[in-house]
Lab assay of single mutants.
Amino acid sequence: IRKQWHEDITQDLRNHLVHKLVQAIFPTPDPAALKDRRMENLVAYARKVEGDMYESANNRAEYYHLLAEKIYKIQKELEEKRRT
């Protein structure tokens, strides 16, 4: 379902936000690492998460909020795993 606010969101912005999700899960300073085949699954997962939020959000603010919440949860989980 195409929503009115979707018209304001460019593909570049969506790609940028997918990249932010990927960085939250696997922070790497090396952009070449993103071309690694093992990263493809991670990028696919991040695209799916972003797509789900894009579809479920009712406006741009909610879209950003859902993504920020997801990134926060991912970082929290990773922190907890590092501690144990």
Rank of each mutant, 00 (worst) to 15 (best):
I1Y: 04
I1H: 00
R2S: 11
R2V: 04
K3P: 05
K3I: 01
K3L: 02
K3C: 02
Q4Y: 14
Q4W: 02
Q4C: 04
Q4D: 15
Q4A: 14
W5P: 04
W5K: 11
H6L: 04
H6A: 05
H6E: 08
H6Q: 14
H6K: 13
E7M: 05
E7I: 03
D8S: 07
D8A: 06
Q11W: 06
Q11Y: 05
Q11E: 11
D12G: 09
L13E: 15
L13I: 14
L13R: 05
L13C: 13
L13F: 01
L13A: 12
R14H: 00
L17N: 15
V18Q: 02
V18D: 13
V18N: 02
V18L: 03
H19Q: 11
H19E: 13
K20M: 09
L21Y: 00
V22R: 01
Q23S: 08
A24E: 03
I25F: 12
F26N: 15
P27A: 11
P29F: 15
D30I: 15
D30T: 08
A32N: 14
A32F: 05
A32W: 08
A32I: 12
A33I: 08
A33N: 11
L34D: 06
L34H: 14
K35L: 04
D36Q: 10
R37L: 10
R37H: 12
R37T: 11
R38P: 08
E40F: 04
E40W: 04
E40N: 10
E40Y: 04
V43I: 14
A44H: 07
A44T: 11
Y45P: 00
V49E: 04
V49A: 04
E50I: 04
E50L: 03
G51Y: 08
G51Q: 15
D52L: 06
D52P: 02
M53H: 05
Y54N: 03
Y54G: 04
Y54C: 04
E55R: 05
S56G: 13
S56M: 05
S56N: 09
S56P: 05
A57Y: 14
N58W: 01
N58M: 04
N58G: 06
R60P: 05
A61C: 07
Y63E: 02
Y64I: 09
Y64V: 13
H65K: 13
H65F: 03
L66E: 06
L66N: 12
L66Y: 01
A68L: 06
A68H: 15
E69Q: 11
K70R: 08
I71E: 09
I71N: 01
I71M: 11
I71G: 11
Y72V: 14
Y72H: 11
Y72P: 13
Y72R: 15
I74V: 07
K76M: 11
E80V: 09
E80A: 04
K81S: 13
K81H: 05
K81P: 06
R82N: 07
R82H: 10
R83W: 12
R83S: 15
T84H: 15
T84L: 12
